[in-house]
Structure formats: structure tokens, C-alpha cells
Design a protein around this nucleic acid. Structure first.
Lengths: 192, 192
DNA sequence: TAAAAATAACGTCAAATGTCCGCATTTTAC
DNA sequence: GTAAAATGCGGACATTTGACGTTATTTTTA
């Protein structure tokens, strides 16, 4: 399971063998079964999660119980609730597995230590944050300005790999439209 | 004009007198008239902007010319396009002044230098980024799950100060609803 | 101060969207 | 292997929303 992470991290961060060993030494391996939760609302998020294999979903609910998908995390991506993790406050999010998955976990304490020891990792971590910020902005703009069909097309084009692996009602939830609307869009596109 | 910034920064970052002087020495003061642009689509964003006085708006347009407000920045807030600033790529955004404003500007180069020299500033900058990330997430969740009326109520409650200073059609644009819908909501609330 | 622009409400109408329902098919779990 | 659950389509209906045009009022600008 660690092999996937090694490949990923070597591609993205220039590390000495010692650095890599250090990072690995504080990582915890874990397998997660489909539908299993890694984080629950109200709980304090304890880890940064790297997905070696599988697919995670981060979502949030409203008082009425409706679920709203914030993010999908397939292999070689990360998942966590940074707000809860950094501030040690109860999380508003759920993270669960859409497929049986293999993940690596780091506690905040250990990850902070790693960043302090390994400047290149710290820099990469900052880069990821900045990418996330941009993706978030893009999504807000899309939510404000795009039609449901445009949102759908964007999603399929941006995440073809993920798209094929998740049920449509979760795509709808991610896009902020009803499954009904998504069905209609797909029907209309089929007829062309 | 610098006085506002001094008060702000002293409240939030522990700085030596020398640090403060250094930060000030590379800042450029500028006054902006209402409707004037500080950043235009296609241009590379050159500055981090601190608003001492006034109100800025960051927005983006679609091919059809529609405007979508990403952010309002009143006094003691910041504005910039981090993506364009960091990567020196053409921006997708406009930044303009909704009121006659007074701002301080730092180039990326100078701000990077400041962060390298002053760890406390770097840390604060990171904290701001993380706050922004959380606000972005919150807004996405709201876009996905809230009704127009809930979005409106949230906005008024969260930014009462800003709300009173901007035209309703810009509130509507920020919320991602039409002015018509916003009018209806307000009328309905008046009748209660 | 007068003309022009911006702002926001309102009415009407058509289109888009959501909710609720059932149904068929596939997938999952015991 | 079978029962149960999940998935996704479709119809009917009510509601919401947006587009467009009009008007009144306020604000800006020359």
C-alpha cells in the first residue's frame, strides 16, 4: 500500500531517502470498507488522509438530513477536514468510502513535525492548499453562473475517471441539482 | 492612510518596530475612485491589496457579459487574485472600487521577501489563507444546499456592515440569484 | 442645477426545477 | 442463491425562478 504513496510523493517532492523514511515511519496504514466512515460530524478530525487506492467522499448534511457532497477523493488524492484538524474543533463533515479503499493516515502533530523537518514537503503542502483554493473559487463561480447542464458537462470533462465510478445521485448532490434535473439533462443529451 | 494598516497589523501579528518599518517601506499607497479598476481580466495581477478605507469588489464575467461577484473587501480586508499573482498568469477576475477607497499595495516579490524575513507575518498569512479556504467551503455548501432566502439571510447576518453599502443587484450577483428573486424575498419578509 | 445613469420594485409570462410517486433493473449483503 | 437495498428513469403536478419590459425614485455627473 505504501508503494503508491512513494511513487506519488517522489513525483511531486524532492526528498532524500531519510526524509521519505521519516514520512513513512509516522504514517499509519488502514483499509476501509465501502460505506465505512472515516470522519463523522461532531467528531474532531484527527488525520490527514492520503488515498492509495479506492475512492472517498466528503459530504455534509443539513438539519433536514439532506446530504451534500463537497469533494470526491480518488487514489493519489488527499482528504481531511482542515478546519477541524487545525483547530481541533468538531467537524461539520462526514468522510466515507465509496469503494473499498486503502489509505495512509498522519496525525496533525506528526504532519506538522514533518513539515518542520522537511521544507520541501512544507512547500508542497502549501502548493496543494493554493490549488485547493483555486478549485474552490472555480466551483463557486460555476455555482453562481453556470446552468445545471454546464455544471454537469464541466464535471464530466474535469473528472471523467471519477465520474464513471460514482452513482448519479451523488453527482447531482455535488453539483447542487436534483437527480431529476440531472436525469433530464442526460436524456436530452442522448437525443442529440 | 498607513495608520489604519498599522493598527490592523499590530492587532494581529506580533512585530518588532523594525519589522513594521520594513513592511511599510515596501508598501505603495494609492487612492482609488469609485468605479475605477485595480485589476482587469487578462492582466497579470501584480499586487496584494490591503484596504485601509472604502470597499472593493472582485468579480468575474461570463462570455455573455454577465457579472458574478466573488468577494467584497471592505476596510481592514485584503483583495488580490492569488492564482494570477502567484503564477504570473493572466487573471480571470476584475477588481474595482465600489466606493472611493484608500489602499496599500505590495508586489509579490516584496511580499515574499517580507514573509521570508518575518516568520510571524508568514504565519499570519497562512492563517488568512486557511480562513479563506474555510469561508470558500462554507459558501460552496451554502450554494449547494440553501434556498435563496436562506442565502440572503446568511449574507445579511454575516456581513451587515457590507450589506448596507452595496446595491442589491450586487448582493443578488454574489448569492447567485436574480435581482427579481431577491426583490421577492425582501417583499415577502416585509409583509411579516 | 439639469440631464443622465443607476437602482430597485412590479407585472406578466414561459421555462426550469423540485417533490412525490411508482416501476424496472442492477447491485449488494447475508 | 435469495432477499433487500440501491440506482435511475419517467410521469404528473406545483412552485420557483428567470427574462423582459415598465416605472418611480434616487444618485451621480457634467
Amino acid at each position: 500500500m505504501v508503494a503508491e504513496f512513494e511513487r506519488y510523493i517522489k513525483e511531486n517532492v524532492k526528498l532524500s531517502d531519510g526524509d521519505l523514511e521519516l514520512i513513512r515511519s509516522v504514517a499509519v496504514e488502514r483499509t476501509v470498507r465501502r460505506k465505512q466512515l472515516l470522519l463523522e460530524e461532531g467528531e474532531v478530525c484527527r488525520h490527514k488522509i492520503f488515498i492509495c487506492k479506492g475512492l472517498l467522499r466528503t459530504y455534509r448534511t443539513r438539519e433536514n438530513g439532506s446530504e451534500h457532497v463537497m469533494m470526491f477523493s480518488p487514489e493519489t488524492w488527499w482528504a481531511t477536514d482542515p478546519e477541524s484538524l487545525n483547530n481541533q474543533t468538531p467537524s461539520l463533515y462526514y468522510i466515507d468510502a465509496l469503494e473499498d479503499s486503502e489509505v495512509l493516515l498522519w496525525t496533525k502533530k506528526d504532519f506538522d513535525m514533518l513539515c518542520a523537518q522537511i521544507p520541501a514537503l512544507k512547500a508542497y503542502s502549501e502548493k496543494l492548499i493554493s490549488i485547493n483554493l483555486n478549485l474552490g473559487r472555480q466551483r463557486i463561480f460555476s455555482a453562481l453562473s453556470a446552468t445545471p447542464e454546464e455544471k454537469y458537462d464541466e464535471f464530466v470533462a474535469s473528472y471523467p475517471n471519477i465520474f464513471a465510478r460514482i452513482p448519479l445521485h451523488m453527482v447531482a448532490s455535488y453539483l447542487g441539482v436534483s437527480l431529476k434535473t440531472l436525469s433530464r439533462i442526460r436524456q436530452a443529451q442522448l437525443k442529440r
